[in-house]
Design a protein around this nucleic acid. Structure first.
Lengths: 195, 195
DNA sequence: AAAGATAGGTTAACAGTGTTAAGTAGATAG
DNA sequence: CTATCTACTTAACACTGTTAACCTATCTTT
């Protein structure tokens, strides 16, 4: 196996086991039985390594999302399913979620296109679903792509509050998630205001 | 002025000017004309210093929110005003926002109650407004306190996506904010489904 | 085959980090 | 006048990311 791959593997498992904060170049190197400087032969710096991990996690999340909607159901159902899958992914694999959405490689180049192809595809898939729902009069949105990002941002907000331990201890986590999900979805549904 | 206060002031301006990443104990100490170890006489460690800054920023945010709804308007109007104020605070003072919602003091004790009194008050105020809206049939929510946290989480999601530069470059920031705000608020509004 | 370039690794070092242990000058108290 | 306490200091430890310089085996070119 190439050293590059090995570095990626050990850093990923280190990330998952110990969390992002305890990942250091030297520890990664030690785990791969190699000197710390060797990492720099394969990655420009720590941020680039992080981006590579990110790319991979994004691909996995994108796949989980794609798989969860296997064609059947109407737009609304699909939206709910996607929201569920997203929340489950985030809460079951918090460390991986973290590097996708919470870690900030310093001065992260604004959306380096190539690295974010996968997640862009997800947004576009989502936008398509929203558009479908709009045409069927089920959803009430303005710009579908913007709506896709909005939905995602809202879900991220929910996850973020939980993962960063900012949720009031008086509130049960599951109840919070359920209610939040309902409320978010409801924001997309066409209002049937009686004339 | 007490050294404790001076340390807080220096670190706050350092935080605002250079950002969280470039804040170090030694730099703070140098800016306060004191040795690095002196900080430890006033704060247990860096996290405690961070928490103190956090506490302060939270108080400011809480005040901005309280001030923005000066009694008049119905529940829905108040909700919109609060959302506006929150978003403005976050986007105008990103560094301060960051320490409130994004920085994670390692192993942050789950909501150390005393330090979060202010923000809890805000949530309760928000819950009251939501309850008021429910009683007037304007809002459709289950548990008002949970809804308060949900609203906040959603808004945080929007801010978070922008501040961590994860927003698609094709999407105009202002458009995103406006549409997101509308969608979030709509999630709270009573659906008038015709029978 | 000899010579040179290259790929892939090394060790040593720099400049920085949070944090602790031990020591010190000055005010205060008995 | 001595002892204690307070607020600070210097020195040091054990880390961090990163770079410079060096080594060695393999591949390419003459």
């Amino acid at each position: 196996m190439s050293l590059r791959k090995e570095i990626l593997e050990v850093s990923r498992s280190m990330l998952i086991e110990k969390g992002f904060g305890k990942m250091s170049m030297r520890k990664i190197a030690a785990a791969a039985n190699v000197s710390a400087t060797s990492i720099y032969l394969h990655f420009k710096n720590k941020d680039e390594l992080l981006l590579a991990l990110m790319e991979d996690s994004i691909a996995q999340l994108a796949e989980a999302l794609s798989n969860s909607i296997n064609g059947n159901g109407d737009a609304l159902y699909k939206l709910e399913t996607l929201a569920d899958t997203f929340l489950r992914f985030a809460l079951e694999r918090p460390q991986e979620y973290e590097i996708i959405y919470m870690v900030r490689p310093e001065e992260m180049p604004k959306f380096p296109k190539d690295k974010f192809q996968h997640i862009r595809k997800v947004y576009e898939m989502l936008a398509d679903i929203i558009e479908e729902g709009r045409q069927q009069g089920q959803l009430d949105v303005d710009d579908p792509l913007v709506s896709a990002y909005t939905l995602w941002a809202q879900l991220h907000g929910i996850v973020s509050v939980i993962l960063s331990r900012r949720l009031d201890t008086r509130i049960a986590r599951d109840k919070f998630i359920e209610q939040a999900k309902d409320q978010i979805i409801q924001g997309f549904i066409t209002q049937k205001t009686p004339v």
